[in-house]
Amino acid sequence: MGYSKDQLLTRLQELQIDHAKYEHPVVLTVEAQAKYVGNMGGALSKNLFLKDKKHRFYIVSAMADTKVDMKVLSQRLGLGKGGLRMAPEEALGEILQVPLGCVTPFALINESARHVSLLLDQGFKSQDRCIFHPLSNDTSIFLAPSGLDKFLKSIGRDSAYIDLEANPMVGKDQPPDLAAFVPSGSTVLPDTPEKVASSQVSTGNHVILDSKSVAAKVKKPSSNMQHVKENSAPAAQPSLLFKDPEKFVEEILDKTSSLLLSEITEANVKQQGEQLGTALVNSLRKRLSSDLKNLATIYKNTAYTEGFYAGTHHQPKRS
């Protein structure tokens, strides 16, 4: 069972993250949500839950008036023009563990969402307060972008702020600028028919698009990913973690140490000597394999992106 709204709010209090809560009737569209909280000072958000052909999942959290072109976004991720589509409804329950209309970055607190990639609209960074559903669409919470960053850091995520409306060239000499954000892990769901919307439907913070509609627009009211610095360069700059080999190794050691301590705590105290050691090793290999592969893939993609960026932006001195 995933986190509940009350558990999430308690977690925010424990982290001492300043936030305001406003309860309202269940809303299924951003417009409906705006009727209750749109004039209370804060930037409404729309959240897309997407998947690619390899069953890798993404949350794209955008300002309410940001145009998200899924074909462009797919190319920027290196997935081709048709590589992204809306995730099936059953994935909401299986992976994010939230009902329809409740997609939110806070769903990443659930272990089942550990491989879900998160892309945040860079527009949030200039807002005093942002508005999200706290795992339930009968409530809205207001918090500063720094509060969201603090929450994400507490669950082992870095905040990846992206210009979602950018449309950089992608080709042989212009690699996809968001390739480092493609998760290496995949989730296999039961083979059930996906529910396809016949037209665009905005379900609270979850926007469903048909194959002809690739951008959602409403009235504006503010594993591990990467921090992206705002500058004039078209490419997103990866986190320092994946540029520094020492920090990269420290991250691996931190994950291993944390998991080892949790395994010792949970281990059967009756197990002794070689028996306990074997059990721990097997458990560590099983539980760390996917995470370490994910880290290594991000490191590789970051190195590739950094190398290309350095090569294309290096200006030789004229004699």
Rank of each mutant, 00 (worst) to 15 (best):
154 S>D: 01
189 L>I: 11
160 A>S: 15
197 A>R: 04
144 A>N: 05
179 A>G: 04
142 F>K: 00
160 A>E: 13
199 S>Q: 13
195 K>M: 09
184 S>V: 06
165 E>P: 08
142 F>E: 00
160 A>L: 10
196 V>K: 09
163 D>G: 06
181 F>C: 12
144 A>G: 04
188 V>K: 14
144 A>K: 04
182 V>R: 12
145 P>S: 02
152 L>S: 11
192 T>V: 15
146 S>V: 11
164 L>V: 11
148 L>R: 03
172 K>F: 08
163 D>Q: 09
140 S>F: 02
179 A>S: 10
183 P>H: 02
166 A>F: 07
186 S>E: 14
199 S>A: 12
179 A>C: 01
152 L>P: 06
184 S>E: 14
189 L>C: 09
168 P>A: 02
182 V>A: 09
155 I>G: 04
188 V>F: 08
143 L>E: 02
180 A>V: 10
172 K>M: 04
143 L>G: 01
183 P>A: 05
188 V>N: 14
165 E>G: 12
187 T>I: 15
194 E>Q: 10
169 M>Y: 12
188 V>S: 14
143 L>W: 01
186 S>L: 11
184 S>N: 14
193 P>G: 02
195 K>N: 06
158 D>C: 08
172 K>Q: 06
138 D>I: 00
150 K>A: 13
199 S>K: 13
173 D>P: 02
176 P>F: 07
151 F>W: 02
139 T>C: 14
165 E>N: 08
189 L>N: 02
166 A>M: 07
186 S>A: 14
195 K>Q: 11
181 F>H: 15
140 S>C: 12
189 L>H: 02
178 L>P: 01
152 L>Q: 12
190 P>W: 03
196 V>W: 00
163 D>T: 04
164 L>N: 00
186 S>G: 11
185 G>W: 00
174 Q>S: 15
180 A>R: 07
152 L>I: 03
162 I>Y: 04
162 I>K: 00
171 G>Q: 02
177 D>Q: 09
179 A>K: 04
169 M>E: 15
147 G>N: 04
162 I>W: 02
198 S>R: 09
